[in-house]
Amino acid sequence: MNTRLLPFYATLFIGVLAYLICVIQFPGMFSTRVAGNLLTDNAFLGIAAVGMTFVILSGGIDLSVGSVIAFTGVLLAVLINWNGVHPLLAFAIALTLTTLFGAAMGLIIHYLDVPAFIVTLAGMFLARGLCFVMTTDSVPINHEFYTMLQSLYWRMPGGGRLTFIGGLMVATFAVGILIAHFTKFGSYIYAIGGNRASAELMGVPVARTTVGIYALSGFLSGLAGIVFSLYTSAGYSLAAVGVELDTIAAVVIGGTLLTGGVGLVAGTFIGVIIQGIIQTYIVFDGTLSSWWTKIVVGILLFAFIALQRILVWLSTRKASALGAH
């Protein structure tokens, strides 16, 4: 078995186990209704997490995700409600801006050769600040197109609803998997995450790919912002605080190595669902409080980082046993 995929199998195992425990305790959770809600409630998180997966796979990090989601929400509210722009056009404007925003961060990271976390930290401040410049109020979005999108769903067998945004998340993951494994861009991401210097020697266009990765993350954060505004029907400057941490946690729990190069987009999907299951469990239980989510996520985060560390340690020990050096 490929040891690099071990974290992914561990995620899969934990995900299934968690779900089984829930179902044994609360048989009500075994329904497509709950499954549909899981997808809907975590749609924006999942979409942003796909972008974060690519960033982390390349060995970087993007702290601006939550702020960009809030920025998109506020921008949409302002455009649609106050300026009468059609939502579709507003979506296009928002996605263009967030993509450019990500690309700009990628440019700075690559050409100034500075750590991604400090650049995206500036991005986080900037995006959040721009929200406040537009408005500090929570602006509701009322538009028939929004109502139409919100009421779109596909009734699954068993009565569950796969909503438009839930479906969009699943579609995003599908496209993400295609990008990761069936495009040159995807292979370049893994290559840079594996070893930037080697990748460069092998002819990988490092500059173009780095900018592309952060642009993609910006685009997906924008998409997550659109989904979030559909989910909440409002734009609010203080929304989605700390979502970047949730997405990073989902990516790591999904089995992606935080140092880059190893991981699967599909793993992130399970990571998102595990977080959703924990929340659902807490709701079903009724006596537990919401902060347990953070603690359990923290413990899982530690467990996965420790697991990866042990795997790396084992593989270097194997390597040093093989070679003389």
Binding site: I61, F117, L245, I248, A249, L258, T259, S289, S290, W291, W292, T293, K294, I295, V296, V297, G298, I299, L301, F302, I305, R309
Partner: peptide, 24 residues
């Protein structure tokens, strides 16, 4: 462990623990 990775764990779990202490 890389410092960013190592301290991220408490960054995520810490607030949960704080809420646990104050019981929300």
């Amino acid at each position: 462990l890389q410092p960013i990775v190592a301290t991220l764990i408490l960054m995520v779990a810490g607030r949960g623990i704080a809420q646990l202490i104050t019981e929300g």
